[in-house]
Simulated scan of single mutants.
Amino acid sequence: MEEGLPAYSKSQLALRNGQDKPQIWIAYRGYIYDVGESRLWKNGMHYEHWAGQDLTEELREAPHSDTVFSKFQRVGILKND
Results as ranks from 00 to 15, higher is better:
Gly52Trp: 08
Val68Arg: 05
Tyr31Met: 07
Asn43Asp: 15
Asn17Gly: 08
Val68Ser: 01
Gly4His: 02
Glu37Asn: 08
Asp34Cys: 06
Ser65Asn: 12
Asp66Ser: 02
Gln19Cys: 12
Tyr47Arg: 04
Arg39Gly: 15
Gln19Lys: 15
Gly76Thr: 01
Pro22Met: 07
Ala14Trp: 04
Ile26Glu: 02
Gly30Tyr: 04
Val68His: 01
Glu61Ala: 09
Val68Ala: 02
Tyr33Gln: 03
Gln23Val: 03
Asn43Trp: 10
Glu58Gln: 11
Lys79Gln: 01
Tyr31Phe: 09
Arg39Asp: 13
Gly18Thr: 10
Ile77Ser: 02
Leu15Gly: 12
Ser11Gly: 10
Pro6Lys: 11
Arg60Leu: 12
Trp41Phe: 08
Pro6Glu: 04
Ser70Arg: 09
Ser65Phe: 12
Ala7Trp: 06
Glu61Ile: 02
Tyr47Trp: 13
Gln19Arg: 15
Gln19Asn: 15
Gly30Met: 08
Ser70Cys: 05
Ser70Pro: 01
Asp34Val: 05
Ile24Gln: 06
His46Pro: 05
Asp54Gly: 13
Gln53Thr: 03
Glu3Lys: 04
Asn43Ser: 15
Gln23His: 10
Ser38Pro: 13
Glu37His: 10
Ser9Glu: 09
Asp66His: 00
Lys79Asp: 00
Phe69Gln: 00
Gly4Gln: 03
Met45Val: 15
Met45His: 12
Gly30Trp: 04
Glu2Ala: 06
Gly44Ala: 13
Lys79Trp: 00
